[in-house]
Amino acid sequence: MNDKHLDDFIRQRVSNAEITPPPSVWEKVEASQQPSRRPYLYAAAAVVALLMALPLFLRQESPYYEPRETVMTPIEDRKEQSPFADIIDEMNDAEQQTTVQSQMKQYAATMQNNHNFADKAQSAMTYLDSLDVAAQRKRALRDIDLMAVDLIEQKVKRLEMEAISEDLWHTPEQIAMEQPSAKNIIPTIRKVFHPDYYVTVDLENISKVRLPTRSSTEKQLIN
């Protein structure tokens, strides 16, 4: 038997041979034909990880996040000092209107040049009455409120200085006589806080104006 004879003999009998594979082979093939679920598993794992990380993220203190209660804006700061705080709080926080702001600035400048307290306040009320929109009214009230506080502080200081220099404490009646029209100006001004003194003012009943008490020692030192 030569090589070619051997090769032909074997090839003819072997090339078309068939041997049945075990069922496990088809099972492997079929399993590999199934669409992979791996992408869905990855997506589900990512969602779970995000959900787990979210509370941790929110719990962290961010330099850009402050609880709302601790935010102190200049306007709110002033509002705390405002005698009109209650009135302002009752109003809606309407959006600021540029027109009103500019009008109020103009009005404030006019009022600063007016030395007559009663006239200023009366002008303020007149202006307030001309405002229909609640938001505009609110802003106007706040600005007038601040100006009124400033004027009252000046008044109190002046009275205080007079009292000190003349050793004379003004009675409520005297103050009322000085500013008889003030009670018609602003509906209520409850309290005015100042680092140096505390005064309660009610312009509806101006007789209740009280100046800071001073000790007798202090009066003696001043005198």
């Binding site: 049945t20 594979p21 082979v25």
Partner: peptide, 14 residues
Amino acid sequence: QRQLYERYAGRLFA
């Protein structure tokens, strides 16, 4: 696919 497999799997396994 199963039919094709059954037709040729024996030969390929050999």
